[in-house]
């Protein structure tokens, strides 16, 4: 158990005029931990995710990340070049709609290899080998390596997006509703894959979802948001099995049984 957290979020708030996007969010994330941020539409979870992944400038607060050299850097005091580099190497971001996180008009192999080429890999054979390996890991048949994602199903596209993000060995992955819009059987496969990869690679992840079952399956810790505030926070199974706050109790009791 390493002693230093990977990410420190302090007092992060985002206001749109007088409207609250999210308010006063504090937490730390350690390597290998998966944190789920759950809430309904309008809870502020996506706003929060964007604030901590440098996609949206917070109105207040700070987000510090422990770089590979061990030093903590305030993400919003970095140059844009450094932030973009971080996004491409040490971090991953899995979008809800895979088309937002892929280049739809280049082949699957090129999609996976792009990050490698962006950090200077210049050997075609090795890049292709790495891409093939990753396609295998996300259960995409190797003979699809030269096909464009346009010809892939939704679940396949999402798995490709995951491979594209993980190829540079990131330490922290953000996921925005990774199973949203997928068929149930496809969701199950994807979740199992993500779960396995997170375990195998020791990834830290922050998963935004409105689906409590996804949170239960993937995360160690959970944050429940409502109207921009974090109203409950703790061990995932504790929050789901022994919810304390009224809103959490409402959420948990609203899940339909199959």
């Amino acid at each position: 158990m390493s002693d230093n957290p990977l990410l420190k979020v302090s007092g992060v708030s985002k206001f749109y005029g007088s409207r609250i996007g999210c308010k006063d969010v504090n937490f730390e994330l350690w390597p290998g931990e998966v944190l789920a941020i759950v809430g309904e539409s309008g809870s502020g979870k996506t706003t929060l995710l964007n604030c901590i992944s440098t996609r949206l400038l917070p109105t207040a607060g700070s987000v510090e990340y422990r770089m590979r050299d061990g030093n903590f850097r305030d993400l919003y005091h970095m140059s844009e070049a450094e932030r973009r580099f971080l996004m491409r190497t040490d971090w991953g971001f899995v979008h809800q709609n895979p088309a937002d996180g892929l280049r739809m008009t280049v082949s699957a192999g090129a999609n996976v290899g792009e990050r490698l080429m962006a950090v200077g890999d210049r050997h075609y054979g090795k890049i292709r080998e790495t891409a093939t390996d990753w396609l295998g890991r996300v259960e995409i048949s190797a003979d699809r390596i030269d096909d464009q994602p346009r010809s892939f199903s939704g679940g396949m596209r999402q798995r490709l997006q995951i491979a594209r993000n993980l190829v540079t060995g990131p330490r922290l992955v953000f996921m925005d509703e990774p199973t949203g819009g997928l068929d149930v059987s496809v969701q199950a496969r994807l979740l199992d894959l993500v779960r396995g990869l997170v375990n195998d690679l020791g990834l830290a992840a922050i998963v935004v979802t409105h689906d409590l079952a996804v949170a239960r399956l993937l995360s160690h810790r959970m944050m429940v948001m409502k109207d921009g505030h974090v109203i409950e926070h703790g061990l995932t199974d504790r929050v789901l099995d022994d919810p304390r706050e009224p809103y959490t109790q409402l959420l948990v009791s609203s899940i339909l049984q199959v």
Binding site: A110, G113, R115, M117, A118, R122
Partner: peptide
């Protein structure tokens, strides 16, 4: 950030 250029050549 010229990774994309190499993507084209890769393709």
């Amino acid at each position: 950030e010229y990774g994309l250029m190499h993507v084209k050549l890769y393709e």
